[in-house]
Every structure is written in structure tokens, then in C-alpha cells.
């Protein structure tokens, strides 16, 4: 596939998010289903996920920079970024509103934290998918 450095960067971010945060959410789901209801046990798992995301991002960008020209983002990249952002940011907004409502309804902190994480994950993945769609199908 003929991709600019920016498009490759989006693929790398998407992959790192799915592997890192997606993996965390699977593990966290298993922990929650096993009755873990306090936040501290989730912290080391989340730390591993963050390290994984950063490591995959760095390694991916190094490989992308070595294998092709690392052109600066141009107007098309910026427009695609803006459109994807405006098409995905509502997901995080819904998550934040949901978290506030959960707090009002006295839902446990562990559930509120994960609602926020899921909405952040959903928002970022949607943004990346939209960007890739705009790169492939045109804007």
C-alpha cells in the first residue's frame, strides 16, 4: 500500500492502542468478572499497558522513518486529522457525562474509571479508523 509517513503513523497508533489498551481492557474485564472491586490492583496492569503503547509507538515510528521519507504533515494530513477528531471526540464526551451520572448514582469508582477508559479507547480508535478511511477513500 502506498502510504505517507503520517498515514503509517496513524496505523502504528491504532495498532499500539488495540494491543495496549485493548489488552488492558480484556484483562480488566476478567478481573472485574472475578470480583475485583478496588482500583489499586488495576494500576500495575494499566502501567504495563501504557509502557506497551509507548514501546510499540516508538518502535513503529523508528521502522517507519527508516523505511520511507518522513515528510512533514501537509494540509491534507491536517484536514484529515481535524475531520477525524470532530467525528470521534463525542465518544469521550458521552463517556465523561456517563461517568458524572455514575458518580451521582453512587456507582463504584472502579466502574467509573473504566467507563472513562473505555470511552477514551473508543474515541481514539474511532479517530484512527476515520483517518485511515479518509486517507483510503478520499476527503
Amino acid at each position: 500500500m502506498d502510504m505517507s509517513f503520517e498515514e503509517k503513523s496513524v496505523w502504528i497508533q491504532l495498532f499500539s492502542l488495540v494491543v495496549g489498551l485493548g489488552g488492558y481492557l480484556v484483562v480488566a474485564g476478567l478481573m472485574l468478572s472475578n470480583g475485583v472491586s478496588a482500583l489499586p490492583p488495576f494500576v500495575p496492569v494499566f502501567a504495563v499497558a501504557v509502557v506497551l503503547i509507548v514501546a510499540v509507538n516508538i518502535a513503529g515510528h523508528v521502522v517507519a522513518a527508516i523505511t520511507n521519507r518522513s515528510d512533514e504533515a501537509d494540509e491534507r494530513d491536517r484536514l484529515i486529522g481535524c475531520r477525524a477528531e470532530s467525528g470521534s471526540s463525542w465518544i469521550l464526551g458521552v463517556g465523561v457525562i456517563g461517568a458524572i451520572l455514575s458518580l451521582i448514582l453512587s456507582v463504584g469508582g472502579v466502574w467509573v474509571a473504566h467507563l472513562l477508559l473505555i470511552s477514551l479507547f473508543g474515541s481514539e480508535v474511532t479517530k484512527d479508523v476515520l483517518q485511515i478511511a479518509y486517507y483510503r477513500r478520499g476527503i
Binding site: D2, S4, D71, D74, E75
Partner: peptide, 10 residues
């Protein structure tokens, strides 16, 4: 022009 080759292609 000051854009990427992929943008010219698009």
C-alpha cells in the same frame, strides 16, 4: 509545491 507525494496522488 510543498506537499507529500501521496497528496499529489490524491
Amino acid at each position: 509545491v510543498g506537499v507529500t507525494r501521496q497528496t499529489v496522488n490524491a
